[in-house]
């Protein structure tokens, strides 16, 4: 079984700052494998091990995704090899465009059975890349997958929906986005990083890829009308001092009672 994992080398929001006007400044943050993606690597690795298959990491972005740090960060997490489209022309690409380039890159890899991705990215967080990628490939796209199993070369997936839990049998190639808690991903150790440094990396030429814009009207099928700070929601801003565990626990219980959660 040949599995491609689409992942993102993205700015880590931990070091990002929310400015007064609500916009986010990623200037001081460092890039890392987007937090949702190691789960996808792990799901793919287990599936490939169960079927004697191969796991190929695939990422699209500016040239920083091709640094040795970025390559090893991905390759040490259960991948066999890497395919990259690293071009600074993609630095500010929106997620629709990224999905179109991902689709073009998947088409250059022969006989892919499955594409797996995380459910969102830490920087853009639009959560639509896997399904737009499926559309670009003309494949089935399934989101919210929390378990993937295989028996006799037949893949079954499970998704937990608000009112039902479903198990589906896949027939034909598909793109899956897996939930953040589908499995616990490995933390790479020394041997995995050592091995990662020796694994093959193929860098595709962006210009010569056959990128078909996604959507009937081509790339500009929507336009951003406005962007503003997200609503604060219904946060109650209750702060409980954790210095003394007993008092803290009592405070927590009282707070939960007040809002009727207990």
């Amino acid at each position: 079984m040949k599995i491609v994992v689409a992942y993102k080398w993205a700015r880590n929001p931990q070091d990002a700052e929310v400015r007064e006007d609500g916009t986010v400044d990623f200037g001081r943050s460092r890039a890392a494998v987007s937090e949702y993606d190691p789960v996808a690597f792990e799901v793919a690795r287990r599936l490939a091990d169960a079927t004697g298959g191969e796991v190929i990491g695939l990422s699209v972005g500016d040239t920083s995704i091709g640094t040795s740090l970025a390559r090893k960060a991905a390759l040490s997490r259960g991948l066999d090899r890497l395919v990259l489209v690293a071009d600074d022309a993609l630095a500010d690409a929106d997620s629709t465009r990224l999905a179109a380039v991902l689709a073009a890159a998947v088409r250059t890899i022969e006989d892919v059975d499955l594409v797996i991705a995380g459910e969102s990215s830490t920087d853009l967080a639009e959560g639509q890349v896997p399904l737009t990628l499926a559309a670009g490939l003309g494949w089935t796209g399934l989101a919210g997958i929390c378990d993937v199993g295989v028996a006799d070369e037949v893949v079954t997936v499970r998704r937990d929906l608000p009112d039902r839990r479903q198990t589906l049998l896949l027939d034909g190639p598909a793109v899956l986005s897996v939930t953040a808690d589908a499995v616990v991903p490995r933390i790479p150790g020394m041997k995995e990083i050592l091995a990662a440094a020796k694994k093959p990396v193929q860098v595709l030429d962006h210009a010569s890829l056959d990128v078909t814009p996604v959507g009937a009207a081509g790339e500009a099928s929507f336009e951003v009308l406005s962007t503003s700070r997200p609503a604060d929601g219904t946060r109650r801003r209750v702060l409980i001092d954790g210095a003394d565990p007993d008092t803290a626990a009592a405070g927590l219980v009282a707070a939960l009672r007040t809002i009727g959660a207990m």
């Binding site: 001081r28 040795s68 740090l69 090893k72 933390i187 790479p188 020394m190 050592l194 440094a197």
Partner: peptide, 23 residues
């Protein structure tokens, strides 16, 4: 250091040293 260390480490990597981060 957040900007300087990666640069100096990059020099070591260019020379052929293998960086093992996160260990």
């Amino acid at each position: 250091r957040a900007r300087f260390d990666p640069w100096l480490v990059g020099k070591a990597e260019e020379a052929g040293a293998l960086l093992m981060p996160g260990i």
